[in-house]
Nucleic acid binder design. Structure first.
Lengths: 195, 195
DNA sequence: AATAAAAACTAATGATATTAGTTTTTGAGG
DNA sequence: CCTCAAAAACTAATATCATTAGTTTTTATT
């Protein structure tokens, strides 16, 4: 017996509204009460669609990771080697910039032990591995370099949005380019310069 | 007129207790009530020494940054060039590992706009710049490479503690070594291989 | 010993997430 | 069309939290 909810509320609608609210005002201003008001509903009603605030935030984080992975995948589509690497890194950086609040939620996960996130984490890696496949690396090397690349992208995005790069006048775009280029060079050396 | 507090409580004592409590149980389990209990005091009494929870957490974050900078500075003492670079990176990584909860607080700052943190942020950079001074870089290059190094260290520490590196068997120590080596190589090329 | 200030307390407020129990809506089957 | 069960929304309550106002206690200096 499939029922259609009274006023169109569902977990998906709640999640989407939560994402919107967080993107607008950030996590500190977010609350079940605020979300309920946005959905024209009493706070208690949300619990028909969501277990708890914690679960809701996990859903939001999961959604954010999916969007990030989608952006990465889109970025490398039809590209290879160095071009794919730069596009991937750029996409990551732009996501963190354009979805500041969502990126913060991703970074705020204490541990990625959640079964859903576990899966998503794997999907973060796959576009990177796909791109790395052009570099002639062993399987173990691919693991190492995928970690190094993720570290650089995440660290750069984090520092940039935290304002840690604003003390000096040098262009962050150029810092980013140099960093990616350095990794690209190291990558090519590791793989025997086949690219 | 200098008064000595009734039972030895002061901002410094409160701060230290807060740091201990956070290191033990993490930020989610931390509260003014819990802190007050630990200090054998009623919650309201804490406000004689601290403005608010927010200010207290800023103090904790500031303290954490100071400890990180101290560890970095200690690491490069008496070392130069590549040796200093590896020691610095290792110290950063170990701090994030050994003070997991404090490192999370550092990462959790929305913006480093706080005047105290502003100053501390500058001190994060100075041991790195000191180490870079051996590489024969222009001033602008130093800014870029300092950013790249910080990004790699922060990103690696973050992923490692979030569990994002645990999906594959390859040794994270080796990933880290390769990443730092890659940056060291790029750094030497940028500076004309003077090191 | 007296006093003023600091520090701790009690008690209250308002926000929060969450739960129990009740009412309302809704769609499916007779 | 009417009934009924389930889903969804509601009301009301609880417990926790940070924080503040106002009061009492302690303590160092005079």
């Amino acid at each position: 017996m499939i029922r259609i909810p009274r006023q169109g509320l569902s977990q998906d609608v709640v999640l989407r509204a939560a994402v919107d609210l967080i993107e607008e005002g950030g996590l500190p201003h977010f609350s079940m009460g605020e979300l309920a008001r946005r959905l024209q509903v009493k706070p208690a009603s949300l619990y028909n669609h969501v277990e708890s605030l914690e679960q809701l935030l996990t859903l939001v984080g999961d959604d954010a990771v999916k969007k990030l992975v989608a952006a990465e995948t889109r970025a490398i589509a039809g590209k290879r080697g160095q071009e794919a690497l730069f596009a991937l890194a750029q996409a990551y950086r732009l996501f963190a910039r354009n979805h500041y609040q969502l990126y913060r939620i991703i970074m705020a996960f204490p541990k990625w032990e959640n079964p859903v996130l576990e899966q998503e984490a794997g999907e973060i890696v796959s576009p990177i591995l796909q791109m790395l496949s052009d570099y002639g690396l062993t399987e173990e090397q691919q693991i190492h370099w995928q970690r190094i690349l993720r570290a650089q992208m995440a660290g750069f995005a984090f520092h940039e949005q935290a304002g840690g790069f604003s003390h000096y006048s040098a262009d962050p775009d150029e810092s980013f380019r140099l960093g990616v280029q350095c990794l690209s060079d190291g990558l090519r050396r590791a793989g025997g310069n086949v690219v």
